[in-house]
Design a protein around this nucleic acid. Structure first.
Ligand SMILES: [Mg+2]
Length: 310
DNA sequence: TGCCAGGCCCTCTTTAGGGCCTT
């Protein structure tokens, strides 16, 4: 069920950043290609019938200096570094970036659908983090589409569970190579990856437009990847992390699985919009031998809680 | 002491584990 009226413009998006979510990354480069729905419904094609980039295309690409360092891997694959960005005197993700982004989007017919590969788990939450830090917003009717689960799901429905289909890779590069029998250009530059993403979308445009109409998610539902330790979004908020160990000896209850990991999201308390509380519970049982030779066990319960309100 | 992303998918699955995908 769609959460919004059908999108009239699709804005393909890619972020390059200082690393993966585990390090609370910062955006170092953003690229957006805005394509009108009509260009996706009737793509331009070359002599062989293969789709080509729409002729009418608005592009925006900006580089910015993060405050924290890149991981070695992120710097290696993106070709960006704190030094090179500072040498070019690039400012960070600041109000000027927000104004440019908002001006770019305001030129497009709405509603807008943002499109990114693995966007629900990376690009959208990270962009949300940066925007909230600056107290900025996107048009309220903005929706978003993640091509990774969309294409996996479309392929599954197509193949009726054929084994061969499930073995294929769904990285952006794998999809491009599969669809076009060619290497993607400028991988891991934001603009290069947006170009690749748009070509992948064009190859499956009819299906993905239908998917967007049915499954696009409201931007308002996107949660930030993390809460920066500074900036206006932290006012009146709190972040709490706790790890609790409980050791029980001599338990005689039936043997459970050796290790059980159970992760659940529980409602925030009190109910504040945007609040997040996650809890990880890990149970382990260690069996030892008493001098008599009878087995004795030690149960270890680890509860890790992370909470925040926004 | 350990925590250090996390949701999705597949399978030698469901009382679980490991790989993918994003930088
Ligand atoms: Mg990307």
């Amino acid at each position: 069920m769609s959460e919004a009226p059908r999108a009239e413009t699709f804005v393909f998006l890619d972020l390059e950043a200082t690393g993966l979510p585990s390090i609370d990354p910062e955006v170092a480069e953003i690229s957006l290609f805005a394509v009108h729905r009509s260009s996706l419904e009737s793509p331009d094609r070359d002599e062989s019938g293969a789709p080509v980039l729409p002729r009418v295309l608005d592009k925006l690409t900006l580089c910015m200096s993060p405050e924290r360092p890149f991981t070695a891997k992120a710097s290696e694959i993106t070709g960006l570094s704190s030094d090179s960005l500072a040498r070019c005197r690039k400012a960070g993700f600041d109000d000027a970036v927000v104004r440019t982004l908002q001006a770019f989007l305001s030129r497009q017919e709405g509603p807008i659908c943002l499109v990114a590969h693995n966007g629900f788990d990376y690009d959208f939450p990270l962009l949300c983090t940066e925007l909230r830090r600056l107290g900025a917003h996107l048009p309220p009717d903005t929706v978003c589409l993640d091509t990774l689960p969309a294409l996996r799901s479309l392929d599954r429905a197509h193949s009726h569970g054929t084994r061969a289909q499930g073995c294929k890779g769904y990285s952006l590069g794998s999809l491009f190579r599969r669809y076009f029998q060619a290497e993607p250009s400028a991988a891991h530059s934001a603009e290069g990856d947006v170009h690749t993403l748009l070509m992948v979308f064009l190859h499956r445009a009819t299906e993905l437009l239908g998917w967007a109409d049915e499954q696009a998610r409201s931007w308002a539902r996107i949660e930030p990847m993390y809460v920066p330790s500074d900036g206006p979004s932290l006012e009146g908020s709190w972040v709490f992390t706790a790890t609790v160990f409980i050791v029980l000896t001599g338990s005689r209850v039936p043997l459970p699985p050796l290790c059980k990991k159970d992760e659940e999201a529980v409602p925030p308390e009190p109910a504040v919009p945007g609040a997040v509380r996650s809890q990880t519970r890990q149970e382990s049982r260690l069996w030892t031998s008493e001098p008599s030779g009878r087995p004795q066990c030690v149960d270890l319960v680890v509860i890790h809680v992370r909470s925040r309100t926004l």
